[in-house]
Every structure is written in C-alpha cells, then in structure tokens.
C-alpha cells in the first residue's frame, strides 16, 4: 500500500496526493494526519488534489472527515486544485463538502490559511 506523504511548511501541513487513492491509503492518510497535527500543532492543513483525476464517494467523504479531524485540533483545512471533472463528479454524487474550504491553487490556499491564522492570533 502506498502512503501519502505529509509535509510540514511553517505552521501548515501539506498533503499532496499524487497517487490513485485506494480506500486503505485513505484510511492510513487520516490516521497519519491526525498524529502529525497533534505532534506539530499545525494550524492549517492543505490537501492538494490537482493530480487526482478520479474520485468516488469514499474519497469525497475523506475531505469532510479530514476537515472534521483537523477542526478538533483547531486547524483549518483547505482543499486546493480540484479539477473540473472531479468537481462535477462530486456535485453529481451530492457531496458538497460543507465545512471544507477550497481554493484554485496551492498559493491561494496558503493565502487563505494565512488570513485565518492571523485572525486567530489576534
């Protein structure tokens, strides 16, 4: 089973999904991420799915689950780089990812998290 790497950039965690996700790797990613957030005390999680071409309802729910996990550690989640086909599929599946922030690309995603982080400190 391939594991998805989790990179730490400052106070942010970057999860860049470059592989075809299996249900097992999704579960492993959720566990790894929970441990990593708790270990690093990160205030934001960015999930980059610009390389993901195929999604199913399980992966769709993963975003909401990860957002829920992060929220427990007081961290915000941003999903970036979703492809049009993936967006259409998720809408057709009826998954609107309530509670998950989205951004067009990594740069904008980091900007959003930066703004959120500032709001929290003050």
């Amino acid at each position: 089973m391939e594991r998805v790497p989790i990179l730490k950039i400052g106070g942010l965690l970057l999860v860049s999904i470059q592989i075809d996700l299996q249900d097992q790797s999704v579960l492993a990613l959720q566990e790894d991420l929970a441990e990593k957030i708790s270990a690093t005390g990160a205030h934001g999680v960015i999930i980059d799915i610009s390389a993901v071409e195929i999604v199913d309802s399980f992966i769709g729910r993963m975003f909401a689950t990860i957002a829920g996990i992060s929220r427990l550690f007081d961290a915000d989640t941003v999903v970036v780089g979703m492809r049009p086909a993936v967006a259409i599929t998720l809408v057709e599946l009826g998954l609107t990812l309530g509670g998950v922030r989205t951004a067009l690309d990594l740069e904008r995603g980091m900007k959003i998290l930066g703004q959120l982080g500032r709001g929290r400190d003050s």
């Binding site: 999903v79 970036v80 979703m82 492809r83 049009p84 967006a87 259409i88 998720l90 809408v91 057709e92 609107t96 990812l97 922030r101 989205t102 951004a103 067009l104 690309d105 904008r108 995603g109």
Partner: peptide
C-alpha cells in the same frame, strides 16, 4: 445550481 456548487468546490 450544480455549476455554482462545482465552481465553489474548486475554490471559485
């Protein structure tokens, strides 16, 4: 509506 929601998913 679907278009709007899909765009929102992509961050727009």
């Amino acid at each position: 509506l679907k278009t709007v929601v899909a765009a929102r998913l992509m961050g727009a």
